[in-house]
Design a protein around this nucleic acid. Sequence first.
DNA 1: ACCTGAACACCGTTCAAGT
DNA 2: ACCTGAACACCGTTCAAGT
Lengths: 179, 179
Amino acid sequence: MSGVKVTRDQIVDRAYELLAEAGLSGLSMRRVALDLGVQPGALYYHVASKQELLAVVAARILKGLPGVAKDPREAAGDFRSALLRVRDGAEVVSFVQAYRPDLLVPTHALRRLFTGKYDERRAEWAARTVVHYVLGFVAEEQNHAELVRAGIVEEEPAHSGDSDEAFGFGIDAILNGLS
Amino acid sequence: MSGVKVTRDQIVDRAYELLAEAGLSGLSMRRVALDLGVQPGALYYHVASKQELLAVVAARILKGLPGVAKDPREAAGDFRSALLRVRDGAEVVSFVQAYRPDLLVPTHALRRLFTGKYDERRAEWAARTVVHYVLGFVAEEQNHAELVRAGIVEEEPAHSGDSDEAFGFGIDAILNGLS
DNA sequence: ACCTGAACACCGTTCAAGT
DNA sequence: ACCTGAACACCGTTCAAGT
């Protein structure tokens, strides 16, 4: 009836907010449409598919990450922090890395940091090694958090600083081995 | 009408086959029920939820992996091979690692291998570092493969041995840094 | 150009009722 | 004990028709 106008930016904004608030299972095309006061089909005039939408959302998750990082350790930490800011952030970014690897800033930034020590091929591999570790680590953190939230799994008594230490242990080992 | 009997094993078997053949998007409770000639609701007498079913399927994916591996490098390679044998294997195992970490053999095996060099906490961290890397690496490999299969992304001309080399580069660096 | 209305082909899960 | 039938509350995507 009404014929409300929607922009691509509004769609991306709402999708990002839904992801942050409700996680990946709460982010549906139909819910985005409902929140924007529009029929589901209307979204497909602005966005080709949910996958394309997720790619743009992933880019937004990583927006603000330094294109040129100081050192790899800090870059990995910033990467993890950005992922943790949004529910299921690692899963979304992990998918997009396979979908549109060019959209992901951290890999570029890390590759540049290794370009001095290695040839181009190995610098790429080194960057991906770090990225894979971070994504794997945070994916487990967030999957666990989702299960706790759903009441399927009980929270472990281990205090939260523990996972920071575990994360640090891992990248230190990796960066150590890479140099 | 008919009242066909189904066992939990049949359900798990069919779920595993569907995953291997059609990937995670092809594995639905309704499809499993259809293939077994039973109504969807019947499955819930044998299995609490799809998540529980996935946990058992994940255990089957990793079945046959040595509980006591020779060295970490070989253990990591075996782990990757097992994941690659089934479509979306890494994603399924990644989820189950957060759901029921106790079910996963490779983490145990790797932890044991590090128990000599480290105290208990660090041995656990070292094992998880390797596991996170392997899961992250294979998840990207398989996500990419799914997108190629769906025709959403074109296959890259890089020959397949390349990813073996990239994988080896990563674990070598990690294991190097861990010792 | 952009949206509605309505459909298509699906999901996971629950539960009274049947055997 | 185990299954059916049927519902509940959803999905992503397409597309003729309207404005």
